[in-house]
């Protein structure tokens, strides 16, 4: 089962997360996203949550970890297309102090 897809356009790597994010799924997602970041150099990395129906605080850990990973590769991390429930969790977590929501 695939867990992410991506598009790479003019220095922006967009990674579409294709499943719910909990502690169980986070480990695989982390590996796959990091592999994409390593293989495709970009100035900006966008995590797309359009297909994420549910996430718990494991998703916040995933975002924080990818922020660090992107920084190691000289890229900025942004997140987009969160549903209202995921957005509320992300707002509550304080992670928006380091990561912007673009849409």
């Amino acid at each position: 089962m695939h867990t992410i897809t991506f598009s790479n356009d003019k220095g922006t790597l967009t990674i579409f997360i294709e499943r719910d994010i909990d502690h169980h799924n986070a480990a695989d997602l982390r590996l796959e996203i990091d592999r994409a970041i390593e293989l495709m150099p970009a100035r900006e990395i966008r995590l797309d949550f359009d297909s994420v129906e549910f996430m718990d605080s494991s998703g916040v850990g995933l975002i924080m970890g990818r922020y660090k990973k992107a920084a190691e590769h000289g890229a900025k991390l942004r997140i987009q297309n969160l549903n209202s429930r995921c957005r509320r969790l992300v707002e509550l977590s304080g992670v928006l102090e380091i990561v912007d929501i673009v849409k």
């Binding site: 480990a27 982390r30 605080s57 494991s58 850990g61 970890g65 977590s93 992670v95």
Partner: peptide, 8 residues
């Protein structure tokens, strides 16, 4: 550890 956010 392991990227747990500590927010549970």
């Amino acid at each position: 550890g392991e990227e747990r956010a500590g927010l549970g």
